[in-house]
C-alpha cells in the first residue's frame, strides 16, 4: 500500500512539474546501518545531480514576469 502511495505521489509530482526522482521509498531496518548509509548517500548524489529545485526558479520567474 505504501509503495502504491509513493507511486501515486511520484506521478502526481510529475503532473505538477516537479521531478519524481526527488522522492524515493526504501525499506531499511534499524539493524541495517550500512545499507542506510548507502541509500542516503545514493539519494544525496541523485538529488545533487538533479540540481536545485526548479520550484524556486519558477516562483521567481512568476514574481518578476
Amino acid at each position: 500500500m505504501t509503495a502504491k502511495r509513493i507511486r501515486f505521489l511520484k506521478e502526481f509530482l510529475s503532473f505538477s512539474g516537479i521531478e519524481p526522482d526527488r522522492l524515493r521509498l526504501e525499506w531499511v531496518s534499524s539493524a541495517e546501518a550500512t545499507r542506510f548509509v548507502e541509500v542516503i548517500t545514493d539519494f544525496i548524489d541523485q538529488v545533487k545531480e538533479l540540481g536545485p529545485s526548479p520550484l524556486k526558479a519558477a516562483l521567481a520567474a512568476q514574481d518578476l514576469n
Binding site: S14, S16, G17, I18, L55, A58, L59, A61, Q62
Partner: peptide, 8 residues
C-alpha cells in the same frame, strides 16, 4: 518545465 510554469 511547461507544467511547472503553468501551475506556478
Amino acid at each position: 518545465e511547461g507544467r511547472l510554469k503553468y501551475w506556478t
